[in-house]
């Protein structure tokens, strides 16, 4: 199984898929294979945080994971599929704010939060404040991540924070803003708890808030 972990970690996509198939056909318990992927993803996440892996590796890892789960699914019983999830660190609600349709940074943040044990709900792009509030009521997140690349997103982010206050939810969640033009000025203006320009910094805040 270490061979599979290595193949995934070293971005040997074809080898990883071939090994996955080989193990499945040989009758290896599918959850064991899933665990190998999880372990590999964890190492990839660490390398990303250490600054040796970047966007190409993270995206390719995501693709390998997707391809593998398509292969593995038929072998997993309904029961195994449901259970087996380890306890989550916390809940993270995520979206690109209204008026902005950029999603690369948001996608990376979501993926890294997932790797780090958060239950992630991604609302997509151009998400109005009202929808953040509705979803937050349902999902009960510990942290809300607001993404935006454009300066117009400052106002949209501010609206989400205001709406959280009105709904009496502001003190129950941490709000983190992320994007190319975020800094302490923007953070203050928006009324967020933290700002980041890269996903790794976001993970550190998130884990810190959850006491990890």
């Amino acid at each position: 199984m270490q061979e599979l972990v290595n193949a995934i970690v070293e971005m040997m996509e074809n080898d990883a898929l071939a090994l996955t198939k080989k193990y499945l056909e040989a009758g290896t318990p599918p959850m064991q294979i899933v665990d190998a992927y999880k372990e590999a993803l964890k190492i990839i996440g660490q390398r990303f945080e250490q600054g040796t892996y970047f966007v190409p590796e993270l995206i390719l890892a995501g693709e390998m994971m997707n391809a593998a789960s398509d292969l593995i699914k038929p072998y997993i019983s309904a029961e195994e599929g449901k259970g087996g999830g380890s306890a989550k660190v916390g809940r993270f609600l995520l979206g690109t704010v209204e008026g902005d349709i950029h999603d690369i940074g948001k996608g990376m943040a979501g993926m890294l939060m997932d790797i780090n044990g958060f239950e992630v709900k991604d609302l997509g792009v151009d998400v109005p404040a009202k929808r953040f509030i509705e979803e937050a009521r349902q999902f009960q997140p510990d942290i809300i991540g607001l993404s935006g690349l454009l300066t117009l997103s400052y106002d949209s982010m501010k609206q989400v924070v205001e709406a959280l206050k009105e709904a009496g939810m502001r003190d129950k969640v941490k709000v983190i803003i992320g994007g190319g033009q975020m800094d302490e000025h923007a953070c203050q203006y928006v009324g967020a708890d933290a700002w980041v320009t890269d996903a790794v910094a976001g993970i550190k805040y998130a884990l810190g808030w959850m006491g990890k």
Partner: peptide, 8 residues
Amino acid sequence: PVSLIMTG
């Protein structure tokens, strides 16, 4: 920083 133009 453009943020300061927008919010400062």
